[in-house]
Write a protein that binds this DNA or RNA. Sequence first.
DNA 1: GGCTACTGTGTGACTTAGTCACATACTGTG
DNA 2: CACAGTATGTGACTAAGTCACACAGTAGCC
Lengths: 226, 226
Amino acid sequence: MITDPTVIDELINQFHFLQCADAGFVRQFLGNTKIMHLPADQPICQQGMHCSHLALVIEGTARVYMIGENGREITLYRIGPGESCILTASCIMSQKPFPAFAVSEQPIQALIISTSDVVRWSNQEQAWRDYLFQLISERLSNVISVVEEVAFRRVDRRLAKYLLQHTDNDSSRMQATHQSIASDLGTSREVVSRILKDFEQQGLISITRGAITLEDRHRLNSKSTD
Amino acid sequence: MITDPTVIDELINQFHFLQCADAGFVRQFLGNTKIMHLPADQPICQQGMHCSHLALVIEGTARVYMIGENGREITLYRIGPGESCILTASCIMSQKPFPAFAVSEQPIQALIISTSDVVRWSNQEQAWRDYLFQLISERLSNVISVVEEVAFRRVDRRLAKYLLQHTDNDSSRMQATHQSIASDLGTSREVVSRILKDFEQQGLISITRGAITLEDRHRLNSKSTD
DNA sequence: GGCTACTGTGTGACTTAGTCACATACTGTG
DNA sequence: CACAGTATGTGACTAAGTCACACAGTAGCC
């Protein structure tokens, strides 16, 4: 049950479907959900789990990833504000176990919705339904582009792109260990270390423990495309 | 418009949602769809296309795959009777371009539904909606398991599994070129050829032009798991 | 039959990736 | 400053992908 009008305003602002939905639904929605807080680096879903709730992220991010037999990881996608762990939704709608892992990265504030409400509302309110479809579709194309990456693209180019995407244009600096990068890309730490070292020797980046600074975004960009 | 009562019986039998749906919807459904025939090896969707129709497969199969920069292919999943090119549905619901390719493998007989009907019915009929959610979710987990395969599993083991999955227990023979196998697995023809040759030398299979016969399913199975 | 074009397969040499077993370096805590 | 814990570096090796080209089976055609 959510009552604070400031919070309600924020929610309506962030979750577009609440703007399109009719007033009765919004009332019901606010009456049946609650806000949850979760610290950073907490597991959210385990592989094989059955999901009992759907979380809509208000603040913070979560990472959804798989673990291979060898212990290597690969990130499927991240969930940010306004999004939801749609794999959960997908599991709810198809009643299958969750095929991956999810963990909070930053502290998370999220709306919690019970599976029964998820299903009920999807039969009742078009705005909610559209939101669900939208998210699942989004994730499907996310995951498909992950397939493309791992199946076809060279690690050095993927890494170059990754560095560009994870830094601002001005600061050009990112906090990350080689292991965390490897886990995102689905490769091994040694490979990342070697390629980074190579980039450094070419003057594209500079490396310090736990952080990387881009020195030549332009040349790095041409590396990433070929 | 579909009127033939035999055909209607078959459809209701094959598409479960028609059994759950109310009579009015079924009437509407049959009134607004038509049956299409497509020969084998015809392109269905191109990457980047906007989908104008959804096809529900009655008979035959289609393959949904991606092509990498280098020309290599990887199969994301196949669509069989009772299923639908749900990527299309996903594109329809999220209004995004199609991120892959689809091609008929065997001759296809399919129900054609316009995008507007897809959307309209999803707002109107729960059985149809559930069918869509179910399919998209299914595909999402399909594609996720493809990620797992390519990111973590060795090609020889994936190939062993592939051979077992694509042969009956009794005949143990399959028609396929090394290239077609490579395109399914997302690797290159040479790699498949070499591994197959290796399997042959170990007495697990025998190879003839365009076909493979399994000689020792049991040992092949232990190869596939490790 | 024999010629030809086409498709399918084999192979070596080379590059890129991933694995394993370590060595080494940095950082915070007491 | 010593220590434990985390982060990175490196060589040797295996697995996978690329490239160039050889060669074998098949079908059509005269």
